[in-house]
Design a protein around this nucleic acid. Structure first.
Lengths: 348, 348
DNA sequence: GATTGATCCTAAAGCGCATTAGTGGGCGAC
DNA sequence: GTCGCCCACTAATGCGCTTTAGGATCAATC
């Protein structure tokens, strides 16, 4: 009776050494492409290793100073905003593509808040768990960057603006200001003068960048009825803010939502109030996804390639792990996909 | 000039030993609650450790036989279906809640397909990276379960039916058959006789369970115009199938979608064809999320607590890691939330 | 034919921890 | 007062790997 088959044993370098008739060190040299063994021995060792299905124990490797072959990723957002968001899974998917190629693992953790997130970094560092981390949702005045500097943990900040105070951290960022400028340009050309930007979480670097950019654009054009309102990214707040601004005396004729979820919720809210999209109010989602084509009218959206974004970030991190210098990489500006939710402003 | 501050050094047990004036072994005993040291020494060691911010190196721990303090999670779905899906992030969020409490890490990987996924398990096992894994999307005749048995890797199958062929694996599952039965019950009571089930990926265990359950219910009631159609879970296929079945000679009066995304896409597709929901056709989503309240009409949905599902799965895995027996755990049957997309069947 | 030098390989130490065996001192028992 | 025992602790070993320091062999050099 096969009650409990014993787990198969993992082959070690010692096993290879024995079967190849050489010392363990020779095996190590052979498998790591280090000089010190002849080509024929190297080949033999390689063959034996392959045949035994040997893979280096990450634990042993890490212990002898090679690093943990793992990078960390912490997501610190309130649990209820975790639900329907296409961005992160796509980002992670892109990250994985690059990491998998180098057999790097991705340690994933969801945290409650920033303090929690910092604690996770500290723990990971102290436990020797990761060689580097990917940081998302950077804030203005972000404690994490100081911490990572202090720990000397290689890191790539995703979506942060280049920050000269942290020369050791790489940054991968999109030019939100440029995108906002071209977006306002497009809306302005359609005759829109009253614009409300339903932004994401206050304090996030890219939220603040977008808000500042919008204000700058408005000032440049002399538009006085332009404003940003921050939210928690949830459909509920998106709808609530939409209702509030549309019920005001002089409602906006264009709404910019910082994600797809709020845009969809906003359209529904507008419809309830009797506003027709795009006849009465134009809507743009700052994030494109299947969601934008799941509602009527289809939503115009700023589209970026989140998978590629993830790939770029992961590539930068591997470069950092290889000892390369920290860099500031800009990804392409998101492109406005004009669908059916944007149109000429109603001339009051 | 602070060109490159040297990274802080991680404290080790040796540091603690020196500062506490005892041997390393004493430190080990003290910190692991093992007998062999006096209480006062234990306290002193603990204090020093705390003060130094010491944390055990997972690498060293793993190497000395304690396991990697990490569990693995592989997601093998085509990249384009990764986009908008509330289920997985919620599941993972629940998993984390339990794992974080025990300082277990979660190694996350997206794979191309099943073979790829199996390769990941093999690699993780050989590299000593994980102590156990969480398996999602079990199939009928799933190669992964055999593999995990062979490797002796503790695992919890999420969403699989209890399978006596793999006594070493735990299973956490929902009673899809029961849910389907009550759902058909409800629809039948509303007068629906022609029902189409727009299912998920063929071959997935729960897809097959639902299909079988639907067929059984139909037979029991003598309904002949009831069918299931499999899809890839995407909004595109959801919409396409919806169009196809609604354009048939005798279109169904009720549609059951295996996820929220397809349901939303389906409603839009139905609307385009001139079908009004729920007057002409009722719609139910098998998965509740914010999405269901972002469209008009609000979607009736089978709701389950995905976060709790994740918690349960992680709890079972930790029990397994603690040497407990494999178990079959059933989570509560999803509950039908009746919103506005279901109503009495139109009497032709 | 002894000296260098290269080449291919082995021995040994060390990474940070857990664990087993061993050591010394205090104490009760006879 | 000696024996033995338990307690509190230290020394030493091993986990699987990398790396440094050597050692053996052979060819080329003066």
């Amino acid at each position: 009776m096969p009650a409990k088959r014993p787990a198969a044993r993992r082959p070690t370098m010692k096993d290879i050494a024995r079967r190849a008739g050489v010392s363990e060190s020779a095996v190590s040299f052979a498998l790591n492409d280090r000089p010190g063994v002849s080509e024929i021995t190297r080949d033999r060792v390689r063959r034996v290793a392959e045949q035994l299905g040997w893979r280096p124990s990450t634990a042993a490797r890490a212990l002898s100073g090679e690093g943990a072959a793992t990078v960390g990723f912490v997501l610190a957002r309130p649990a209820h905003t975790l639900g329907v968001d296409s961005f992160f899974l796509q980002l992670v998917s892109g990250i994985q593509e690059v990491l998998a190629r180098r057999h790097l693992g991705l340690l994933f953790q969801v945290a409650q808040d920033l303090d929690d997130e910092c604690a996770v970094y500290r723990r990971w560092w102290a436990e020797h768990r990761v060689d580097g981390v990917l940081v998302v949702d950077p804030r203005t005045d972000d404690p994490r960057q100081d911490l990572l500097d202090e720990l000397g943990l290689p890191a790539v900040v995703i979506g942060g603006a280049p920050d000269e105070r942290h020369p050791a951290l790489s940054t991968v960022w999109a030019d939100d200001a440029g995108a906002m400028a071209s977006l306002v340009d497009a809306l302005h050309a359609l005759g829109h003068r009253r614009i409300v930007h339903i932004a994401g979480l206050p304090g996030l670097a890219h939220t603040e960048r977008r808000i500042r950019a919008l204000r700058a654009e408005a000032e440049r054009r002399g538009l006085t009825e332009v404003q940003s309102v921050t939210t928690d990214y949830s459909d509920a707040e998106g709808a609530a803010v939409t209702r509030r601004v549309l019920e005001a005396p002089a409602p906006p004729t264009a709404l910019i939502y910082d994600n797809d979820v709020m845009a969809v919720a906003g359209v529904a809210a507008a419809a309830e109030l009797g506003f027709s999209v795009p006849a009465d109010v134009s809507v743009v989602a700052w994030e494109d996804s299947a969601l934008c084509r799941m509602v009527k009218p289809w939503l115009s959206a700023l589209s970026r390639d989140s998978v590629a974004f993830g790939r770029t970030a992961a590539t930068e991190l591997t470069a950092l792990l290889d000892g390369g210098p920290a860099r500031r990489v800009r990804v392409p500006v998101p492109r406005l996909i004009e669908r059916d939710s944007t149109g000429a402003a109603r001339t009051a």
